[in-house]
Design a protein around this nucleic acid. Sequence first.
RNA 1: GCGGGCGUGAUGGAAUGGUAGACAUAACAGACUUAAAAUCUGUGGGCCUUGUGCCGUGGGGGUUCAAGUCCCCCCGCCCGCACCA
Length: 854
Amino acid sequence: MSRYNSRISEPKWQKKWDESEIFCANRDESKNKYYVLEMFPYPSGRIHMGHVRNYTMGDVVARYKSAQGYNVLHPMGWDAFGLPAENAAMEKGIHPGDWTYQNIADMRAQMLPLGLSIDWSREFATCDPEYYGHQQAMFIDMMAKGLAYRKSALVNWDPVDMTVLANEQVESGRGWRSGALVERKELTQWFFKISDYSEELLNALDNLDNWPEKVKTMQANWIGKSVGLEIKFPVTQKYNGFSEIKVFTTRPDTLSGASFIGISPDHPLSKDLEKSNKDVLSFNAKCRHSGTSQQDMDKAEKIGFDTGLTVSHPLNPKKILPIWIANFILMDYGTGAIFACPAHDQRDLEFAIKYSLPIIDTFFSIENKIKVKENAFVPPKTEIVEWVDHFTGITKASGEEAIDLTIKLAEDTGWGKSITQYRLRDWGASRQRYWGCPIPVVHCEKCGVVPEKKENLPIKLPKDITFDKPGNPLDRHSIWRNCSCPSCGDKAKRETDTMDTFIDSSWYFARFTSPRSNTPVDNKEASYWMNVDQYIGGVEHAILHLLYSRFFARAMNLTNHLPKKAIEPFNALFTQGMVTHETYSIPEASSIKRKVWYSPDEVHKKNNKILVKDTGKEAFVGPTIKMSKSKKNVIDPQDIIDQYGADTARWFVMSDSPPERDVEWTTSGVEASWKHLNKVWRLVVDAKNDTTSKNKEDLILERSAHRSINEVTKGIESFSFNKSIANLYDLTNTISKSKAGSGAKISALKVLSKLMMPFTPHIAEEIWEALGELELISKSPWPKANRELLESDDVTIAIQVNGKRRSLITLSKSLEKKEIESLALADENIKKILNGALPRKVIVVPGRIVNVVL
RNA sequence: GCGGGCGUGAUGGAAUGGUAGACAUAACAGACUUAAAAUCUGUGGGCCUUGUGCCGUGGGGGUUCAAGUCCCCCCGCCCGCACCA
């Protein structure tokens, strides 16, 4: 009894929680619900410290809200489709499904000892046919509404692995797995019409008050709305039906400075020219080969090709501008063509200098003309500038005024129109992969692309596949592939593309509300549980996952799979920081640049040096970075739980850093957490053996406890868990030093254990029981601070003279300003400083400060 | 380049415009111990002339009775996006 043993206590309480089913969520319309969700994990096989931090945060919120009387939903599942399973299949010869389900079992077994208040009865994996079957049904409904469609598009194609790669999977122009040069290939692919929602997804961000500003800004930038002018430039020659070039600009005010037209190598005109002109063909090929990776982009020099074709300037038909193909113009933004204004756009200027194209400054000042030789002058939008525009007649205007005038002129004359352009492109949803949700359509020679009949769902992945050849095994599985057409009954072939795994994670939160429903989502359950009240996860999902989910919720609503109230599914979002650790390394003898890395358990500390255990050599302490296998700075949660218990790990990850920032894992920090929990337990044992009777210290202790209730509650509410924990340390120290009677100490310890419960639930239960309580602390209500006890009658305030603290006095809170002032002036220290002088002014802020101004 | 964030002891970090450094770690000293660990007590921004003194929240200026906090300029770091017309 004298020592707290987490190895015995933790499983004991986990079993009791499990038996009493207290974390099972049931719809109860009479109670307010609270839905806490952490981003579900990919079943890699092992949990890491990032998981521990993420799920502990969610658990603190869930347990706290539950204690506050909310009907809490806190589920867990698995984002189980994806490439790693196929890689494992290729490397180890295991079936991706077997590999995945084994990993899920392993990870669940590692998560259970954390004592999370999760409703495991709702668990599912996205690779369960029941789950992806509903996804297929929704896909069919979205096809019917035109939200899912097929089109031909340029994709990153890995010729060795024979699959499409996402942009993130292309490194320096090469496939991340095969190392093969990636080709840009035109393929017919499935898309979701997310672009229909550009405006709405952008506008709705304004209502997401409890999302981090940073994430909202990132999404807004990603959607990338720009308002501008689309201008038609008539082509002066007759060429294959290309009578005009449409360009998009956000700065129509610089139109008079246009010196040439630039088109993308992928522009229809460019593609047409390459058919008949070998030089164009080789130029375009050169452009397509570079340009995929970030590094290439940075270094990429601007190159161009003069097509020989020309257009006339809409403001002055006599003015003729050449059409160039230029590598810096993107086909998938705007019209894939620009008018170049070298004087007022840096990119255009670089290009113009290189190819000796005219630089036409439309601004009056001589200063500009000198500057413009190296740096383009971007006309300010708000400031009024002198103009020298012969075409529009503008002489003095701000950029904004000039833009408006030019747009009006264009619309009146008919050579242009105001349009809104978005950067957001439709969501490419198909992958040439096995381990994903099959797209439920068939290709029929007679009927074309036909959706499967819903009664045939789920279209299950075949189990008997091989990975001995590159490419998609579904393509080679002729039994699975060959089917009959749902429409005419003739022979047909199944679609072998599978869905992007981001689709799986775009609606799992809705499925959690009714995980066994025979429709994708049960309307009654979703109406009650949605929205997610608090969503917690890594900021790396700020754009893709969170934007896709926002779109998918709207698409589900349109296809009657989700109530209207859930179209913005996450009321509050919290993005937590990473878990980091120091790195240890020794440079290799052959090259200083190459290093041998050592894991934290391969080194030990001696005389302030880090020594490698095996060799005794000194290792260098490197930067503190995210735990990663390659740098070996990884701490396995399992080891920590085995050694110290889950409560210690939970307490530590929540203690030092604010949750949105990175937390550095340190051995000393973990040991301190462990020591602290043991200290709390000793206090409990001591208090029970204590015979001190009631005394005047009781009230002081009681006041401290109530102040802590207030502070810890505030900390949890504001996601400042580190502050809550600092306060719990404070309360522990106060109890430890208190001379109060045993009764008061026990009361204070009960408060302490309640406040600790969300963070360290096992030891909290153990204390609760030791102090004679029969109910589970996990079931008992959150304590309420008694306002009368929060503040004492006396208050210590500082007295400043000219803003510098000179003395402290303790006085009754109820005193009037005048009384405080005279007490302050009567203070010995203040009297000495004043030395008889009369203050000019005395500022009294009751309960805070007195400032004497001389 | 554009957008967002940050800069406080040796370290992680506290501070509704009102006593800067709560709480924790590392370090040091003392108690207990044959000893170590554990535990307990204390010191813990800098400086000197040791006064209840002066300086101190990246640097400079400003507003205020009062600035880590608000405003302006500069420096540095981190994150995101990026030839987006």
